[in-house]
Amino acid sequence: MSRDINIEAQEKVWDADRPRWLDWKEMWDHRELFYFFTWRDIKIKYKQTVLGLLWAVLQPLMLMVIFTLFFGNALNVPSGSLPYPVFVFSGLVIWNAFSSGLTGAANSMVSNAQIIRKVYFPRLIVPVSTALSAFFDFTIAFILFGLLLIFYRQPVSISAVIYWPLSVLLAFLATLGPGSLLAALNVKYRDFRYVIPFLIQLIFFVTPILYPFSVIKLPWLTYVAALSPMFAPIHLFRAPLLDEDVPIHLIVVSLTSLLLILITGILYFRKSEDYFADYA
């Protein structure tokens, strides 16, 4: 008897004509899949590699060395009160999470097409988990960042306790917005495969990562830089190290841009989700 009641309670109706909204409850029911997809991505990434997790550190480290040599030394790009390596690494460490998370998320629906064609689950889990696995690499690189701070005897404001987690969270949301948008577009139009690396490069140079915000002299250009969803996370990440005056309204512009892209991304993803299996 109890079984019957149980089953009645689980009654679900799927109507072809009724539009479905993002189903949070369903997502919550599948919460373990977030973990499993992320876990699998991390496992697979470092299987059969000799250096393993070191790769997560090597990439930003090498970039730091190159940028320090060419931008810091050769071009004499200013870096405020910070040594240039610390300055550039503090930007790169969080940028790297964004760029590899975005690349992964944007390709995630296509690379998991096999699974999508055979099993149902809320599809948003796939790009979210792929981005999460990139942020796992971030934690490794972050340890290196800590060592770098110690090496340069760089004082860190106590506010880092708030700024850093906040910045990482924002960077994750900044990844998720374009990530889910591109993931959905990529399923339908494979053109976006070629758009992704280009887009990432574009945002990289627009965002003040290699150079401090203060070198932008033209007022309208500051708004262009602030349109980058990564503008706010990177600034917030550096805030405990650097006293650089970034006007609050530019932070608001960046956060607005971040939020708009996030909402657009998730809505578009939701809207096209049903038909992924037909195109993938």
Binding site: I7, A16, A277
Partner: peptide
């Protein structure tokens, strides 16, 4: 299995549903 949506119609499901359209989905 909800992998693809119907164009018309309605489905009522009472209970947990699992589908095996392939064995070893997601095997890596």
């Amino acid at each position: 299995s909800r992998i693809t949506p119907p164009t018309k119609g309605r489905i009522i499901v009472r209970g947990r549903i699992a589908s095996l359209l392939e064995v070893g989905t997601g095997f890596h």
